[in-house]
Simulated assay, not measured.
Amino acid sequence: MAENEPLPLLLLNGPNLNTLGLRQPDVYGSATLAEVVRDCERLAAELGFGLRAAQTNHEGEMIDWLHAARGQVGGIIINPGAWSHTSIALADALVIPEVPIVEVHISNIHQRESFRHHSYVSPLAVGVIAGLGVRGYEYAVRHLVALLAPPAADA
């Protein structure tokens, strides 16, 4: 990494998101996770940032990735899936990297079952994007870049 190059963004997806495009397309749309990642990588690069992406169905693996992210990434975009509503351990791990976090949900979790209305992740996030489909990931990239990019020098 060059001296003035910003730290990359980390895009994490939790359980069942590997089935994007197949599972409940009426709720989650037809885009695959590979397409979402590709589009986010392209956008981040256009905006001068790298992007690392990973998905897991194993909570401990996600927590290990967050521990390893400390000092290695500038910000985190996370769609924790169902862990949003159940995992205090994930919330505790999200404090460790000490970087801005944007929580993304493809569906509007507030229009769904009542157990989905609470997120352990949301209080840790600088922003929460829900219900905007996979476009929410693009908005998350743009928001983190706006937070992390150095201000433009006066002309």
Rank of each mutant, 00 (worst) to 15 (best):
Tyr120Gly: 01
Asn16Ile: 05
Gly60Asn: 09
Gly74Ala: 09
Ala93Cys: 09
Trp65Arg: 15
Arg135Phe: 04
Asn13Cys: 08
Gln24Arg: 15
Ala68Phe: 10
Leu132Glu: 09
Leu94Val: 10
Gly75Asn: 04
Leu20Ser: 06
His143Ile: 01
Gly131Asn: 09
Val145Ala: 01
Pro100Gly: 04
Ala140Trp: 00
Gln72His: 12
Gln111Asn: 10
Gly81Gln: 06
Ile63Leu: 12
Gly71Tyr: 12
His143Phe: 09
Ser87Ile: 08
Val36Thr: 09
Glu61Asp: 14
Tyr120Lys: 02
Glu5Asn: 09
Ala140Ile: 00
Leu17Ser: 02
Leu148His: 10
Arg52Phe: 14
Arg52Asn: 12
Ala31Ile: 08
Arg23Leu: 15
Glu35Asn: 05
Asp26Ser: 15
Glu98Ile: 04
Pro151Trp: 07
Leu9Asp: 00
Leu9Lys: 04
Ala140Met: 01
Val145Lys: 03
Arg38Val: 12
Ala45Pro: 01
Thr56Gln: 15
Gly71Arg: 08
Glu113Trp: 02
Leu33Ala: 02
Phe115Thr: 01
Glu59Ile: 12
Ala91Glu: 05
Ala93Ser: 14
Ala44Arg: 10
Leu10Val: 04
Val145Asn: 03
Ala91Ile: 04
Leu43Cys: 15
Asp26Asn: 15
Thr32Trp: 07
Trp83Ile: 03
Met1Phe: 10
Gly60Leu: 06
Ala152Ser: 06
Asp92Met: 08
Ser84Ala: 11
